[in-house]
């Protein structure tokens, strides 16, 4: 987050905003439950990837999911949609 200007002189004439990862900060801190993937069960169907509202699931080379806990808000859609129940939601801090 170093692109922020300091004075008017460094600012654009109007509110022009730059695409940035984490525009609202590390939204992973919103989470109370964390999704945990059991890769032995995962069938690489990629449903969790396409349904993640936060783009916090990366589709890896082998199509298995990798969860970015910095930004995952813990909504649980991935766990709910996983056809083989390979993703479980675990309470943070336990």
């Amino acid at each position: 987050m170093s692109i922020a200007p300091k004075t008017c002189k460094e600012m654009p004439v109007t509110t022009l905003s730059i695409p940035t990862v984490g525009s609202m900060g590390k939204t992973g801190s919103w989470r109370t439950f964390r999704p945990v993937v059991d890769y032995s069960k995962c069938t690489r169907c990629t449903l969790c990837w396409i349904y993640c509202p936060d783009g916090a699931i990366t589709r890896q080379e082998d199509d298995s999911p990798k969860i970015d806990y910095d930004y995952c808000k813990g909504c649980g859609i991935c766990s709910n949609e996983c056809p083989v129940k390979a993703i479980t939601m675990e309470r943070e801090g336990e």
Partner: peptide, 17 residues
Amino acid sequence: LKGHGACAGCSLAISLR
């Protein structure tokens, strides 16, 4: 991009993607 401000479980964010 990741780290946007949609509520957890927002379907609009899915639709945008």
